[in-house]
């Protein structure tokens, strides 16, 4: 306690702090804060992305956005995509970690295989999956039919396109969640399980009462990371569906891209981007708030 206070006193003055933080701050300002401010500014203009001049138009972009059904559709898709990737990634990542935390022959290789999609470029992954999803002769349908089920149209149908993109995204981020859970599980003190064994905590009880709370900081971290990743998903949508068919996989980010770079309506596009920023911040804040109830450090 007293060591902490001493530490604070010595380094608390603003110039000293700035001196140390500045090297990290410069790229942050150049590549993050400035673009954000610029984006917010542009969302109040009618810039078409090409002309050198543009006018301030007030909140016109926002008004027309909020009147546009396409926006609400994209917002809904974003939420569906985020929830649809977030929960399975976390749950399956944990299940895999639980299965692989005990080392056995080949467990190392298995871990690497599961982790490898994370370090493979999403574009490459998505191209491969677009072959898998081929309606005629794709592996996905081959498997379905060999199991006696009827084939699906996958990314070619607006009913299944979102599901298809979600599956690819989960598959990609699963290994990442697993790696974090593996290290979290290894760090749970063995004594806790032993104390639990004496108290009578076994199996599911042990998992719920001891394991889950002990790894809750990791769960929280993964929730935030996976959520932000999902909100920012672009590559796989671009390669697999380009937001289609008939807008069924158009998320806010993809809508931003289409508005800005296909329709050259940068004012509207940046308005979408600002909404996305607010959405991300809002969801994160909610998570942080809720986390006080279930995360134990």
């Amino acid at each position: 306690m007293s060591a902490k206070r001493k530490y604070k006193r010595r380094y608390d003055s603003l110039p000293t702090v700035l001196l140390f933080v500045l090297p990290a701050l410069i790229p942050l300002i150049v590549f993050w804060i400035y673009p954000i401010l610029r984006t917010i500014y542009l969302s109040f203009t009618n810039w078409d992305y090409i002309s050198p001049t543009y006018k301030l138009v007030g909140i016109k972009n926002y008004l027309s956005l909020f009147r546009n059904p396409r926006f609400y559709e994209a917002l809904w898709h974003t939420l569906v995509f985020t929830a649809g990737t977030l929960f399975p990634t976390i749950i399956l990542g944990l299940v895999l970690a639980l299965l692989l935390v005990k080392n056995f022959r080949g467990s190392g290789i298995l871990k690497f295989i599961i982790f490898s999609p994370w370090i493979t470029p999403t574009v490459a992954i998505s191209i491969v999956w677009s072959w898998i999803y081929k309606t005629d002769g794709g592996i996905a349908n081959t498997i379905l039919t060999s199991l006696g089920m009827s084939p699906l149209k996958w990314i070619a149908s607006s009913d299944t396109a979102m599901l298809s993109v979600i599956i690819v995204t989960i598959w990609k981020s699963l290994g990442y969640a697993m790696i974090f859970y593996l290290s979290a599980l290894e760090k749970v003190p063995g004594e806790l399980y032993e104390a639990g064994a004496l108290d009578g905590a076994h199996g599911w009880r042990q998992f719920v009462d001891i394991t889950l709370p002990s790894i809750s900081p990791t769960t929280f971290f993964l929730t935030i990371i996976t959520m932000v990743n999902s909100l920012q998903a672009y590559d796989q949508i671009q390669v697999l569906t380009q937001g289609g068919p008939s807008g069924s996989t158009r998320t806010l980010l993809y809508m931003y891209y289409q508005l800005g770079f296909n329709e050259f309506n940068m004012g509207q596009a940046t308005a979408v981007a600002v909404v996305m920023i607010l959405l991300t911040v809002g969801l994160s804040l909610i998570q942080f708030k809720v986390s006080e109830k279930w995360v134990y450090y």
């Binding site: 003190p189 004594e191 806790l192 032993e194 104390a195 639990g196 004496l198 009462d209 001891i210 709370p213 002990s214 809750s216 134990y296």
Partner: peptide, 14 residues
């Protein structure tokens, strides 16, 4: 029906 006190207490932190 035996209780044990551990060296590092092993209290459930949560």
């Amino acid at each position: 029906d035996i209780a044990m006190v551990f060296q590092n207490y092993a209290l459930y932190p949560h």
